[in-house]
Amino acid sequence: MDCGSAFVKYILFLFNLLCAICGILLITFGSIVLSHLGPITQLPNNAQTMLPIVAICLGSVVFIIAFLGCCGALRENNCMTMTYSFLLLALLVCQIVFVVMVWVYQSQLLVEFDNAFNLAWKQRNDDPAVMDSFQTVFKCCGNDGPLDYKNVIFPKSCCPSDKLIKDTCAITQSYNSGCKTTFHAFWSKNIEIIKFAGLGIALIEFVGVVFACCLSNSIRNERRRAHY
């Protein structure tokens, strides 16, 4: 293999290593978000778990394909390299579609999350466990703030565990922020991360496809010349 082909080979290996790291980061991000939402299992809308699960799945696929690309580059295996190229291209298309959908439907997703929370707030008297989960996970209190509980029994979930007085929560010791704003801000931030991280990884994958095609073509030419 000439110097140019060897350069492409090692550049492709480095790009795949970077893709594998990005895949691990996606898995980590999705797992953190999912674990953060873990106690909230009774929401009427499961859209809030869809995005982190998709992120984990994408990260897993990115990691597996990147590993295949690393092996194909180091072994100079034309079949493995071409398979890697097609798989990475298919993943790239799916990922761009996913990012575009998140971008286009961002406002609608946030509205769905807000509606899910509003329904949970309305049903707090019949099913307080959902609001307790919100308040515990997001360290918030009530819909707009602790004053929402002014004329009713104040829930213990509105206070940090170390601020409970005789296993009861006082409004003066509660979280100050309302859960609706906190929940909305949480998803606004994470949707932005999903959009731009997805585009960044897609750009890396595109470069990987180009280098994989170049390496595969170089391997074929090398073998063709070896037969003469």
Results as ranks from 00 to 15, higher is better:
L58G: 00
N115G: 04
V8D: 03
N16D: 03
V99Y: 02
S218C: 09
F138I: 15
K163Y: 15
C141H: 02
I40C: 02
G59H: 02
I193S: 03
C158Q: 06
M131L: 14
I219P: 00
P146H: 03
M1G: 07
W187S: 06
A170S: 11
S35G: 05
I96C: 04
M131N: 03
V102G: 04
N118R: 11
S31I: 08
F113Q: 07
L91V: 02
I32T: 10
F154Y: 13
Q48H: 13
L88E: 11
K163W: 13
P128R: 03
K156A: 09
H227P: 00
I11S: 13
N45W: 02
C213Y: 02
D148K: 01
N143R: 10
N151L: 13
I32V: 14
T41A: 10
G72R: 04
R124S: 12
A116C: 03
N78W: 08
A6T: 11
I64R: 00
N16A: 01
T182K: 14
S85K: 00
F15L: 15
T182M: 15
K139A: 15
T83S: 13
I65T: 02
F211S: 03
L88S: 09
I171T: 07
C57H: 00
S161R: 15
F67V: 14
P160M: 14
G59M: 08
A90S: 14
V111M: 14
C214H: 06
L87P: 00
R124H: 09
L203E: 06
H36T: 14
N125F: 10
S161G: 12
L88W: 03
C22I: 09
L164E: 10
I65N: 00
S161D: 15
M80E: 08
V102S: 07
L109Y: 13
I171D: 05
N77E: 09
F29S: 05
G200T: 13
G72L: 04
C71R: 06
H36R: 08
L203R: 06
L18D: 06
P44K: 11
H227G: 09
L18Y: 05
L215H: 02
F117L: 13
I56A: 02
W187Y: 10
D148V: 01
S216T: 03
N45S: 10
L164A: 05
N45V: 14
S107G: 13
C213W: 03
A55G: 00
A120H: 00
G4V: 08
T172I: 15
L164K: 05
R225W: 14
Q106K: 14
C179N: 03
L87W: 01
S174K: 06
Q95I: 03
F15G: 06
C140Q: 03
I201F: 01
Y149K: 07
Q135H: 08
W103G: 01
P128E: 07
L164M: 07
M101N: 08
I191G: 03
F154S: 05
R223A: 10
S157T: 14
V209L: 11
A226D: 15
L215D: 07
E192Y: 11
C19W: 01
L119W: 05
N45F: 01
K156C: 11
L215Y: 01
L14N: 04
Y10W: 15
G178Y: 01
N143H: 10
N78G: 05
N77S: 12
V209Y: 01
F117W: 15
A197G: 13
V152N: 08
R75I: 05
C179Q: 04
Y175K: 02
P39V: 10
C140V: 08
